[in-house]
């Protein structure tokens, strides 16, 4: 595989790289509405877009992470409801994951990714819950949720269930993607 890729012309390699990247995003988007058995806990599934953003940002710059978060956040807004936006939490997740600079401190990959995803899901659901709460405080009449108690009770359930599931499923997405990007980087490096 490696040797084959080396002989490819650069533009073809780039296109393949982008096709795989975009394809993986599309795959995540298509898994989102499903609830397969084993991917569901208390009617909550893994947060696939967040796993993708973490996988993308973990070895990239903060700017790249934030752009990826913004892109996927806008798409998820379209697939559900745009208020409150999913883009905000995903932008913060992307930038923060890149900022962690995991590879400088921890070489090991699997468990640390699961841990990062766990923490990031909790953070992202908290940001969403904060946005819902802000709606209640600013304009109680048009807010989606009516009272703060409901929001934070719901937040606990979603954050915990989704964090457990996402961190368990994270390696499934992270491992192949990371391996592919590492290979591409290894080929591009010597030139």
């Amino acid at each position: 595989m490696n040797f084959d890729l080396l002989r490819w012309p650069p533009y073809a390699r780039h296109s393949l790289n982008w096709a795989i990247t975009v394809g993986s995003v599309l795959l995540c988007l298509l898994i989102l509405p499903t609830r397969f058995s084993g991917m569901e806990l208390l009617h909550v599934g893994p947060n696939w877009l967040l796993i993708w953003v973490v996988a993308w940002s973990v070895k990239r710059s903060m700017f790249e992470g934030a752009i990826a978060g913004l892109t996927l956040g806008l798409i998820q807004d379209g697939m559900t409801f745009p208020e409150p936006t999913h883009a905000l939490s995903l932008v913060i997740i992307g930038a923060l994951t890149a900022r962690l600079q995991k590879q400088r401190y921890i070489q090991e990959d699997f468990i640390s990714i699961a841990l990062i995803v766990f923490g990031m899901v909790v953070l992202s659901e908290t940001i969403t819950a904060l946005q819902f709460s802000l709606q209640v405080i600013i304009s109680p009449d048009t807010a989606a949720y009516r009272d703060l108690g409901t929001i934070w009770l719901y937040h606990q359930r979603i954050a915990l269930a989704s964090a457990i599931l996402s961190s368990l499923w994270a390696p499934v997405l992270y491992y192949p993607l990371n391996r592919w990007w590492e290979q591409i980087a290894a080929i591009e490096q010597p030139q």
């Binding site: 989102l32 509405p33 599934g45 998820q76 979603i158």
Partner: peptide, 9 residues
């Protein structure tokens, strides 16, 4: 054929 694409809705 599917459920909500996030957990708040």
């Amino acid at each position: 054929i599917g459920r909500s694409a996030d957990h708040w809705w």
